[in-house]
Simulated scan of single mutants.
Amino acid sequence: MDTLASGHAAALWVGLHVLLLLTLSLLVVRLRQKHKVALGDEGIPELARAIRAFGNASEYVPVGLAAIIVLALVGAPPLAIHVVGLVLFAGRLIHAVGLSNSGGASIPRAIGMICTWVAYIFGAVALLFYAIG
């Protein structure tokens, strides 16, 4: 397989996920400045949701990126890397939007988590295929 093409595919998704995390971080900073809050959320629901949207992405994105990077290293087809990257990115974006709009259960949050798990499962199966095969 073309490891260079796999590396380019991985670079695309790592770069997009870094920008997603940066955007979510900037949203927290903007709300902290708006509400003059240095630490925590001081009971401001909008800020609490932004903090959790960033935190949740920070918890799930690194594992997905690790899968993407290792898939590239073992020379997985770029399509496999794009599938993991796209589904993970869509899931994290949809989840962040859903969480930012509502602290309770919501369809976007559920869809975001399902997409994240699908990306994890696809990535894990692909990694095991390359490890065993």
Rank of each mutant, 00 (worst) to 15 (best):
Thr3Ala: 11
Leu4Phe: 13
Ala5Leu: 12
Ser6Thr: 15
Ser6Met: 02
Gly7Tyr: 15
His8Cys: 12
Ala9Gln: 04
Ala9Gly: 13
Ala10Arg: 13
Trp13Cys: 02
Val14Tyr: 07
Leu16Thr: 07
Leu16Ser: 05
His17Cys: 11
Val18Phe: 05
Val18Ile: 11
Leu19Tyr: 05
Leu20Glu: 04
Leu21Arg: 13
Leu24Gly: 06
Val28Asn: 13
Arg30Lys: 13
Leu31Arg: 12
Leu31Cys: 13
Arg32His: 15
Arg32Phe: 02
Gln33Ser: 05
Gln33Asn: 10
Gln33Val: 14
Val37Glu: 01
Gly40Asn: 05
Gly40Val: 00
Glu42Asn: 14
Gly43Met: 01
Gly43His: 10
Ile44Lys: 15
Leu47Gln: 12
Leu47Pro: 07
Arg49Pro: 14
Arg49Val: 05
Ile51Arg: 13
Arg52Glu: 02
Ala53Thr: 14
Phe54Val: 03
Ser58Ile: 09
Ser58Arg: 12
Ser58Gly: 15
Ser58Trp: 06
Glu59Phe: 02
Tyr60Ser: 12
Val61Lys: 06
Val61Met: 00
Gly64Tyr: 03
Gly64Ile: 01
Leu65Asp: 01
Ile68Asn: 03
Ile69His: 05
Val70Ile: 15
Val70Glu: 02
Leu71Pro: 15
Leu71Tyr: 11
Val74Thr: 09
Val74Ala: 03
Val74Gly: 04
Gly75Cys: 02
Pro77Cys: 00
Pro78Phe: 00
Pro78Asp: 06
Leu79Glu: 15
Leu79Phe: 00
Ala80Val: 14
Ile81Cys: 10
Val83Arg: 03
Val83Gly: 04
Val84Met: 00
Ala90Met: 14
Gly91Trp: 00
Gly91Met: 03
Arg92Thr: 14
Arg92Cys: 05
Arg92Leu: 02
Leu93Tyr: 10
Ile94Gly: 11
Ile94Gln: 03
Gly98Gln: 09
Leu99Trp: 12
Leu99Gln: 13
Asn101Trp: 13
Ser102Tyr: 04
Ser102Trp: 03
Gly104Ile: 04
Gly104Ala: 08
Ser106Val: 10
Ile107Phe: 05
Ile107Tyr: 10
Arg109Leu: 00
Ala110Asn: 11
Met113Thr: 15
Ile114Val: 13
Ile114Leu: 11
Cys115Asn: 02
Cys115Lys: 00
Thr116Phe: 08
Trp117Arg: 05
Ala119Arg: 13
Ala119Val: 01
Tyr120His: 06
Ile121Arg: 13
Ile121Asp: 08
Ile121Tyr: 13
Phe122Arg: 02
Leu127Asn: 04
Leu128Met: 11
Phe129Ala: 14
Phe129Gln: 07
Tyr130Trp: 09
Ala131Gly: 14
Ala131Met: 04
Ala131Ile: 01
Ala131Trp: 07
Ile132Arg: 04
Ile132Gly: 07
Gly133His: 05
